[in-house]
Simulated assay, not measured.
Amino acid sequence: MPDFCAAYGCSNRRSLKTRARGITFHLTLLCSEHFRSEDFDRTGQNVRLKEGVVPNIFNFPAHLQRLVATGNTTTSRRAEDNLPMDLSQDVPKPDVGATGDRSLSLKWQATDHLYALPACPKAIKAKLEESSAQLRKLQREKSNALRRENRAKMNMQALLEELKEKNLINKELKDNLECYSDLPVHLLSRQGVEYTKAQRDFALTLHLHGPKAYHYLRDTLHIHLPHPSSLQRYSSLALQTIFS
């Protein structure tokens, strides 16, 4: 049994004084002052909590109290009438079997009220560290999801749409470049890898008809397009092939 009550603002401790006042302490880490009189089983030698009872007597300050909205509409009254009188009916109870295994029942009661503060500062610190680790994990997952989303958006079709929205290419040029919309943009960032014919043709067409768009992709978005000097070399080779 606990030696003090873990409820907010409660200073009751196990002592002769509290015993004289009839205050009892229970495995829920709370004292008897947070339960109703009908919540107790006083038939045995010791005062015990009945199964499934919920503490509902607390002395929270105003800023921690939850406001409950009230309404007089027909819908709200009907919903209110349909609520069970005893909310503990919705709480699943363990099956203690025909032998009435009371130790299992008490264990369930001890873990039921998770809002009670841990019994020692070390437990509070451990709970805080656990919550912080969970928060860091969620932040990493969010960051990874954003990176995956950005990679999904970074395709040639999305680049062409962005160039059109920024008026860096006209509709005619955009339509002419549509045939390259399936080019994997991430391959363009692999420095030292020889460009494919489709990549060279895309870069030549864009640089010839939309030089501002070409430099925007290369200098601002850092898409690894061929250098203008390389484009001149590609053009020279193409002309030599035509006239040879």
Rank of each mutant, 00 (worst) to 15 (best):
P61A: 07
P61G: 05
A62M: 07
A62E: 13
A62S: 13
A62V: 10
H63R: 01
L64Y: 04
L64M: 14
L64W: 08
Q65W: 03
R66S: 04
L67F: 11
L67G: 10
L67M: 07
V68T: 12
V68F: 07
A69N: 11
A69C: 02
T70Q: 14
G71P: 02
G71L: 05
T73H: 00
T75E: 08
T75M: 09
T75A: 13
T75K: 03
S76Y: 02
S76H: 02
R77C: 05
R77P: 00
R77H: 07
R78P: 03
A79I: 10
E80Q: 10
E80D: 07
D81H: 07
D81S: 08
D81Y: 05
N82I: 03
N82S: 12
L83V: 12
P84W: 06
P84F: 14
M85S: 10
M85G: 04
D86V: 01
L87N: 04
L87G: 08
L87M: 12
S88Y: 02
S88M: 08
S88E: 00
Q89K: 07
Q89V: 15
D90W: 00
P92D: 10
P92M: 10
K93E: 12
K93R: 13
K93Y: 05
P94F: 00
P94R: 05
P94H: 02
D95F: 05
D95W: 06
V96S: 13
V96T: 03
V96H: 02
G97W: 00
G97P: 02
A98F: 08
T99G: 08
G100L: 10
G100V: 09
D101C: 06
D101E: 11
S103H: 09
L104V: 15
L104E: 02
S105Y: 02
S105K: 07
L106I: 00
K107T: 03
K107I: 02
Q109G: 01
Q109L: 12
D112G: 11
D112L: 15
D112A: 15
H113A: 10
H113N: 14
A116W: 00
L117A: 14
A119Q: 14
A119M: 15
C120G: 09
C120W: 01
C120L: 08
P121V: 12
P121M: 12
A123M: 13
K125D: 09
A126W: 01
A126H: 07
A126D: 12
A126L: 08
L128Q: 09
L128T: 03
E129I: 06
E130P: 00
E130N: 06
S131A: 12
S131F: 05
A133R: 06
L135N: 10
L135S: 09
L135Y: 06
R136S: 12
K137R: 12
K137T: 14
K137W: 04
K137Y: 06
L138Y: 10
L138M: 13
L138H: 09
Q139T: 13
Q139S: 15
R140W: 05
R140M: 10
E141Q: 15
K142E: 15
N144H: 00
A145V: 04
A145R: 13
A145T: 08
L146G: 03
L146N: 09
L146R: 01
L146D: 13
R147C: 05
R148N: 04
R148L: 11
